[in-house]
Computed example of a mutant assay.
Amino acid sequence: MNKQILIIGACGQIGTELTLKLREINGNNAVIASDIREGNDELMQSGPFEIVDAMDKNSIEKILDKYAITEVYLMAAMLSATGEKFPAKAWELNMTSLFNVLNFAKEKKIKKMFWPSSIAAFGPTTPKENTPQETIMEPTTVYGISKQAGERWCEYYFNNYGVDVRSVRYPGIISWKTNPGGGTTDYAIEIYNNALLVGKYDSFLNKNTKLPMMYMDDAIDATIKIMDAKPEDVKIRSSYNLAAMSFTPEEIALEIKKFIPDFKISYHEDFRQRIADSWPQSIDDSRAKEDWGWQPKFDLHKMSENMLNSLHKKFENS
């Protein structure tokens, strides 16, 4: 039977590029994009789109039936920095949307689902360097709390109801195609944009704040790879650690200077510094590599070159 894929939250930073890649692989009409608002022209024109609220179970069910959906990627969420401004809303969105899809999978309305966790599920008591797959998790943000709770529910639904749910803990995701979505790691997107547009950047994190990061191409590759893995190879049903590189604002600025020698960076910490300080600095993702063959392709230099070249073309054409 052919796949029929629904992406909920398709207009977000990861959702947009995931939708386009899945359409490229499976055919445009086999991938239904959905969100509470319309997305960019490329997304809207490349295949079917439905307006849907991730918290509205009835409207999701209508789409599942309409398109005979077999797989769901639940990408809708309120991210870390935005979630701290609206904690109750963040919790409600992040948890209700997850329960909706878990219950559809439990009822056998879909065969398989993907739900992303995050390094935000860790906390200040978690080992900072080479954070293990299984470790202390005491998140201090509402986003992180919802991700840790979500991991437990995913494993619960797998163990008790046989739900085929798959998940990875995303590090900070960097992309040139879509705008930042309110995350603490978004400085690493803004810095490339500002480097090209104004030649300088004022960082809201201090220069030595080291965080795990990943280029969007690798994040999409990992997401599709775990969903395509054989069920018996997905041995962790809470969420897999995922890593590619770790760097500080100072290190990314030095890399940008290799391409734009006059680039300048300044530092003025805001509330996001406290969030970043609670997260790991590097991640041990050996289980993902062992179980389903995960392997990143981009390091800091290769990513910087790709980001700046792609953004340069984007700004020239806009």
Rank of each mutant, 00 (worst) to 15 (best):
M1D: 11
S59W: 00
K230G: 14
S146R: 02
D65M: 05
A81N: 03
T178G: 01
D164H: 05
K200T: 14
S278I: 04
Y67H: 15
G39N: 04
E155H: 09
E305L: 14
T223R: 14
N103F: 09
E42R: 10
E250N: 14
T82F: 10
N194W: 05
Y67V: 07
A149N: 09
S203K: 02
D228P: 01
V198N: 14
L64Y: 09
L102G: 10
K314Q: 15
P139C: 00
R287Q: 14
T131F: 02
L22Y: 08
T131I: 01
M214N: 11
G9F: 00
G27M: 11
P139Y: 00
F263P: 14
M95F: 08
M214T: 13
L308A: 11
M95H: 08
S278C: 05
I25F: 09
T248H: 05
A68F: 04
K258N: 12
T16M: 06
H268L: 07
E92M: 07
K210M: 11
K128Q: 11
I260Y: 04
R274K: 12
D284I: 07
T82A: 06
N29D: 12
Y215P: 00
F204W: 13
F263A: 13
V101A: 04
G162K: 15
K177S: 10
I8C: 01
A288R: 11
L300R: 12
G123F: 00
H312T: 15
G144H: 05
K21A: 15
F49D: 05
M303S: 13
I174T: 11
D65N: 13
I189V: 14
D262N: 15
L196P: 10
D221F: 15
N100D: 04
P132G: 12
R237N: 15
S266R: 11
D299L: 09
L308T: 12
A81L: 02
T19P: 00
V31G: 10
F104K: 03
T126H: 08
Y201L: 01
S282R: 10
Y170C: 08
A76M: 00
D186C: 08
D233W: 07
L311Y: 09
G15C: 07
M44R: 03
I224Y: 14
D277F: 06
I252C: 12
I63C: 08
S167C: 10
G123M: 03
E92N: 14
V168I: 15
E92S: 12
T70E: 03
